[in-house]
Design a protein around this nucleic acid. Structure first.
Length: 432
RNA sequence: GUGGAUAUAGCGUAGUUGGUUAACGCGUCAGUUUGUGGCACUGAAGAUCAUGAGUUCGAAUCUCAUUAUCCACCCCA
């Protein structure tokens, strides 16, 4: 269609037919997060650009070429490309570090990155994220990973592999960089162009390169795990033992290199192959230096983010169940003005009782009304005409069985209807 | 930012070597008389064939450009 103005590239509309999928994710994530003691935080959609420069890192792709930045009255603002930076900023600014430690925070929010859209990648996407602030213990790492795992299980997702790695602290990483550089220096002439530039800036990225030549060379590259200092190494070993104890399967993947600069020690990803090339459904890790870097006290922390659109894609692909959308409880078809007046009263009272109640607001024929009631999936219908008004009695029709039940249109109606509706729903779920 | 593919009613498609009012299914709305849905039948609304140029007597169909979408690279959720 030649619509005058279309939605921006890489954005999505969620129409009513699909909203229950989002409600499912939102409900389950909230429940799981709160079960683990996490509290929701809400932060602005845009932040001072410097926040992301300082946290995500000036050399990262996210900052260099993917941020939506505007200049407003001499200040640069950026639509958040991820949730951690703003969340940490908010904890510092609101003095949350003075609350009982560790702070456990979660959020569900839109993020923005200017990339070329593809399967599982949007310019506006939504993250469910979790941050645990104020603990350096490896149990915290295990706790956060198990939260993610718990959530994926609750959504009934399958075939999602957990990869973990440690990228060390600044001290051991510096050692490792030296060793890596020396290693790739030998094959300098064979590396692809991007990797050549990575050699100087961030040699760890070469490990991630998909080019067959580079990955061939990288196959024998030194591994960060062999360069970890005692503390980082102990941390990683303990994490593994805790994951074992919790029966969480994982694979140590020394090639996981997260693309945000703030990560230290533990990094992890949950990856599926079911939704195309962008299969990372959850990514996270520890960021022990970030809070200090943003001007706060030296405080260890960690977290992860999940891509909600990717979760939904995977659930659709795997045929996972979503929460059933609610149905209309009662549709009333009034015939004539008297009946309409009665309908208005009944509808009002039923809604007070919590029932989804509808009636004709178009002026359609009875038959058309019945069709409409059928289409919206109404559980019951009730026709009101002069006969019913005079007798003070009407028939409730169960739309799935066709069975009709006579009810009186007095004060008892609401109580009776509620019993009938509950009985019908109970019966239906039994049959199911 | 770089490739490749695609663009016909709300959705899914047909449209054969360019030839009169662009077709079909689903969906929407209305009807098939008397106060009742699901089935069936009938009818209606809904498309300047993504946009703009060009070739031609004539273009949804050929050419070019633009835009958008999809997939992949890259990167990440």
């Amino acid at each position: 269609m030649a619509l005058l103005i279309q939605r921006p590239n890489g954005t999505e509309d969620v129409i009513p037919q699909n909203i229950h999928k989002w409600h499912t994710i939102e409900k389950v994530t909230r429940e799981v997060a709160e079960k683990f003691g996490f509290k929701e935080i809400r932060i602005p959609t845009f932040e001072n650009t410097n926040l992301f420069l300082r946290s995500v890192g000036e050399t990262t792709d996210v900052v260099q070429k993917e941020m939506y930045t505007v200049m407003a009255k001499e200040t640069k603002f950026t639509l958040r490309p991820e949730g951690t930076a703003g969340t940490i900023r908010a904890t510092l600014q609101n003095g949350l570090l003075n609350e009982p430690m560790p702070q456990r925070l979660y959020y569900i929010l839109p993020c923005f990155r200017h990339e070329r859209p593809q399967a599982g990648r949007l310019r506006e996407f939504h993250q469910f994220g979790v941050e645990m602030i104020g603990t350096q213990s490896p149990v915290a790492d295990a706790e956060v990973i198990s939260l993610a795992k718990n959530l994926l299980d609750r959504l009934e997702l399958r075939n999602i592999a957990l990869y973990i790695n440690s990228i060390g602290c600044p001290a051991c990483r510096a050692e490792y960089h030296k060793a890596l550089k020396a290693f790739f220096e030998k094959d300098k002439d064979n590396l692809c162009d991007t990797c050549l530039s990575r050699l100087e800036k961030n040699p760890m990225r070469i490990l991630d390169c998909k080019s067959p030549v580079c990955s061939d060379i990288a196959a024998n590259a030194p591994l960060i795990i062999d360069y970890l200092c005692q503390e980082c190494s102990d941390h990683f070993e303990k994490l593994k033992s805790y994951l074992d104890a919790m029966n969480i399967e994982y694979t140590v993947n020394p090639k996981i290199v997260r693309g945000l600069d703030y990560y230290t020690k533990t990094v992890f990803e949950f990856v599926t192959t079911d939704i195309g090339a962008q299969g990372t459904v959850c990514g996270g890790g520890r960021y022990d230096g970030l809070i200090e870097q943003l001007g706060g006290p030296k405080t260890p922390a960690l977290g992860f983010a999940m891509g909600i659109e990717r979760l939904i894609l995977t659930m659709e692909k795997q045929g996972c169940a979503f929460i059933e959308p609610k149905k209309c409880d009662l549709y009333i078809a009034p015939m004539g003005e008297n009946a309409l007046l009665k309908t208005l009263t009944i509808t009002h009272n039923l809604r007070e009782e919590g029932f989804w109640t509808e009636y004709d607001v178009v002026g359609r024929s009875l038959k058309a009304q019945m069709k409409y009631a059928d289409k919206i999936g109404a559980l019951f219908t009730m026709v009101l005409g002069d006969n019913e008004i005079n007798d003070n009695k009407a028939k409730l029709r169960n739309m799935s069985t066709g069975e009709e039940i006579e009810v009186t249109l007095d004060e008892n109606f609401y109580f009776n209807f509620s019993n009938i509706a509950i009985a019908a729903m109970f019966k239906e779920s039994l049959e199911f």
